[in-house]
């Protein structure tokens, strides 16, 4: 795998994160060093080992489907700049 500006740009596109031109070189260097450290984990055999998704297993947590108090309209929109007719307003989708 070649770690270069092209890879960083590709990942940034997937991550939906614009990068400034001068940031990219720094990330190339960081990717090289950090992935070298991370690749150490390949040396251990993990065949047939379960995924450790949670440190303590909790399964099928349900709660009663009961009506509770929810936020009022003022609270829902308190932190937005873009409100219109009781909806959040966002950019166009396409």
């Amino acid at each position: 795998m070649k770690i270069d500006k092209v890879l960083i740009e590709r990942v940034a596109k997937v991550a939906r994160l614009n990068l400034k031109e001068d940031e990219k070189e720094g990330f190339v260097k960081d990717f090289k060093n950090i992935l070298e450290l991370f690749s150490k984990i390949s040396k251990i055999n993990t065949d047939n080992v379960e995924l450790g998704v949670q440190p303590i297993k909790v399964e099928n947590v349900f709660r009663e489907d009961k009506i509770g108090k929810s936020l009022n309209e003022k609270e829902v929109f308190q932190n937005t700049n873009y409100k219109e007719k009781g909806f959040f307003k966002g950019p166009r989708i396409l």
Binding site: M1, A12, A15, I44, T46, V49
Partner: peptide, 29 residues
């Protein structure tokens, strides 16, 4: 930004098994 990029990279097709899935298994060990 660095952590978003690395985290995204390690979940991308082709790299996910070598990093994310491998690390989850290692966590069990």
């Amino acid at each position: 930004k660095k952590r978003i990029l690395l985290g995204t990279f390690m979940r991308m097709a082709g790299y996910r098994d070598a990093y994310y899935i491998k690390a989850l298994k290692l966590r069990s060990l």
